[in-house]
Design a protein around this nucleic acid. Structure first.
Length: 424
RNA sequence: GGAGAGAUGGCCGAGUGGUCGAAGGCGCUCCCCUGCUAAGGGAGUAUAGGCUCAAAAAGCCUAUCGAGGGUUCGAAUCCCUCUCUCUCCGCCA
């Protein structure tokens, strides 16, 4: 949610910045709602104050065993009016809130303007794509011989699911373990385990349920959603909290499966495990002081990149342009790994600074050095998507004989195994 | 699944219809006293929002005692629904 003070101070400026990301902010409607809210609230509170004062007097009279019927009549006379005002105020506040809750975040000043992914700006490219002296296969073909099984998955769950067996199953597990160890031991994150389902309220804390509920799997008959990323439960750890200054920053790393309905992505990435209804991800989350969120964002992105470096996977990092950013983000770096099978860089991590946007929705604050409550900033990023890392390893480390070399960093997690041999 | 108990401020804990945003204690902040330390005395110490104001400061007001609804002139207190926690029994990875 945008900061109401900022919004009131200069609606036009806000509208302009939102336009950059392709969002039409209805300034007239905002002015109307705000105006209505203001009148309703003032009137309602005046009446409430009057009622409270009279009630107090009634109490005093009754304590002295005196007659209070005149005052009671006076309160009763305005009771209907008060009730009407209260419900009108309630209504306008809800409408104002609904209006505000679907407005995306303001892009940070450093975000390049643009309409689509084509306008994203590459900030760095690391590693050289390998030259193959044999016909390169994509991960589906490489994996087929190693235990990657879409047929069985299709039978039991349908499209966009996978079954892993034997070597690839173990490799999949090794990747997640490796990432968790690097982030906890080298980057100072606290490992957390969190629920795979969250309430609608929590979903609204990090994103907009009204806007994106179709992307989520909902538990029938309950106010629970399967998480599309560990960001959902973990960021909400600090919901409704006032943290002490010295508690910041909080740094969490969490490995979970992620569930996405992928509504609206029909026909996109239908082959292979690039886009699945269920995939594992190791997520980095930081709750941070506003003054440090920019630096923290750079740092978190570097933490994610470290994994790719250690795995020897070529990648590039891009800054998403205003038109390609997610709803809640003020600034996002996507890290894209090189996939020989697609002859392209594909997203493997998305690292965002949400500034106070999520924190205001969650009411996550801290006590600043002036002892005042202030909104925290939140950051998160994939560190990394486990399934896509598996894809990248299968494709980048494939051998002419159909096997796959195991990156050195992962060998300790594979019992010292150096190569996955085809199982036939 | 069955039976019972409970949810109050940073923490503990009182409060079962009236001046209660809430006693008391602990903690914390500031001040005083005490040649250090210990002890003692005083004051302050929730959050969100609104109004006044150019703004700040300040003041006033509203809401909030797990959440939502209801009764009432008035609700932490009474009623209903829900959520969560604890205890016992049963079941169980």
């Amino acid at each position: 949610m945008l900061d109401l003070q900022t919004l009131r101070a200069d609606v036009q400026a806000v509208a302009l910045r939102l336009a950059e990301r392709g969002f039409q902010f209805d300034t007239a409607q905002f002015a109307a709602l705000e105006g209505e809210r203001k009148t309703m609230q003032t009137e309602t509170q005046e009446l409430q104050a009057k009622r409270n004062a009279l009630s107090k007097q009634i109490g005093q009279l009754k304590a002295k065993k005196e007659d209070a019927s005149a005052l009671m009549a006076e309160v009763n006379a305005q009771a209907d009016q008060l009730k009407t005002l209260e419900s009108k105020l309630d209504d306008v506040q809800r409408r104002l809130n609904d209006f505000l809750m679907v407005i995306p975040n303001l892009p940070h000043a450093s975000v390049p303007a643009g309409k689509s992914a084509d306008d994203n700006v590459e900030v760095r490219r690391v590693g050289e794509p390998r030259k193959f002296d044999f016909a390169v296969k994509d991960h589906v073909d490489v994996g087929a011989g190693l235990g990657l099984d879409f047929d069985t998955a299709g039978k039991i769950s349908g499209a966009r699911f996978m079954v892993l067996k034997s070597g690839v199953a173990r490799l999949h597990r090794a990747i997640a373990q490796f990432m968790l160890d690097v982030h906890t031991q080298e980057h100072g994150y606290t490992e957390v385990y969190a629920p795979y389902m969250v309430t609608g309220e929590c979903a609204n804390g990090v994103s907009s349920l009204a806007k994106f509920k179709d992307d989520l799997f909902k538990i029938e008959g309950r106010d629970l959603y399967l998480i599309p990323t560990a960001e959902y439960p973990v960021t909400n750890f600090v919901r409704d909290q006032i943290l002490a200054l010295n508690e910041l920053p909080l740094k969490f790393v969490c490995h979970t499966p992620c569930f996405r309905s992928e509504a609206g992505s029909y026909g996109k990435d239908t082959r292979g495990m690039i886009r699945q209804h269920q995939f594992d991800k190791v997520e980095l989350v930081q709750i941070i002081h506003p003054d440090q969120s920019q630096a923290g964002h750079e740092e978190l992105t570097a933490h994610a990149e470290t994994i790719l470096k250690k795995l020897g996977l070529p990648y590039r990092t891009v800054t998403l342009c205003t038109g390609d950013m997610g709803f809640s983000s003020a600034k996002t770096y996507d890290i894209e790994v090189w996939l020989p099978g697609q002859n392209a860089y594909r997203e493997i991590s998305s690292c965002s600074n949400f500034e106070g946007f999520q924190a205001r929705r969650m009411q996550a604050r801290f006590r600043n050095d002036k002892n005042k409550t202030e909104t925290v900033h939140t950051l998160n990023g994939s560190g990394l998507a486990v399934g896509r890392t598996l894809v990248a390893i299968l494709e980048n480390y494939q051998r002419a004989d159909g096997g796959v070399d195991i990156p050195e960093a992962l060998q300790p997690y594979m019992g010292g195994l150096k190569t996955l041999a085809p199982v036939r």
